[in-house]
């Protein structure tokens, strides 16, 4: 398969991370004409339990809809790392918030970003964590263009929250570019 890309967003339930996966996949479909799918975990605990969403993006129709070789993993909880750090490619990009995730396998390309701190300081509301995380993911990977991701985010943002969501997204994106310098 050509241009096959697998991303995993993991956290604990309630951090809004499932939505980040949904935005990424639908933006790839709607604004880049790609095929994409997402499969969220569906744990008994809606809030507080480890949760993840896997997104696959491909230029061709996706046959097997689950991940087998992950290119990017976001992790916002140690428990989520412990449970979901599987099937990562040896050169997988791993993005963690160091205040929440202490122990990861350093053989991957690990990037540390204070995602919660950035959200808290600038946005005041933690509901924008997923927009910051999505911006950071795009900044690190450019798996879809920043314009497409931004459009996807704005299309999914509840009415009246478009502007703060965009600000949050840009904060994550810029912070990622700093990390890459």
């Amino acid at each position: 398969m050509s241009n096959h890309y697998e991303a995993r967003f993991s956290a604990v339930g309630g951090q809004g991370i499932l939505l980040a996966g949904d935005i990424l996949a639908s933006a790839a479909i709607n604004y880049e004409g790609k095929f994409a799918c997402d499969s969220p975990t569906y744990t008994a605990q809606v809030r507080g339990g480890p949760t993840k969403v896997d997104v696959i993006i491909d230029s061709e129709k996706i046959l097997f809809p689950r991940t087998t070789a992950i290119d990017f993993m976001l992790c916002l909880a140690q428990r989520s790392w412990d449970q979901f750090a599987q099937d990562l490619k040896p050169d997988c990009i791993v993005l963690i918030d160091p205040s929440l995730v202490k122990n990861v396998d350093e053989s991957y390309r690990v990037y540390r970003m204070p995602i919660l701190e950035i959200t808290k300081t600038n946005m005041k509301k933690m509901v924008y964590t997923s927009a910051v995380a999505l911006g950071a993911m795009i900044g690190l990977t450019e798996v879809i263009s920043v314009e497409s991701a931004r459009k996807g985010l704005l299309a999914k943002a509840p009415k009246g929250t478009e502007q703060p969501n965009e600000i949050a997204f840009n904060l994550g994106y810029e912070a990622a570019k700093e990390l890459l310098k």
């Binding site: 949904d22 499969s39 569906y42 809809p65 689950r66």
Partner: peptide, 10 residues
């Protein structure tokens, strides 16, 4: 099945 029920795709 659960995979198809919860899978979102184009």
């Amino acid at each position: 099945d659960e995979v198809i029920g919860h899978l979102a795709e184009r």
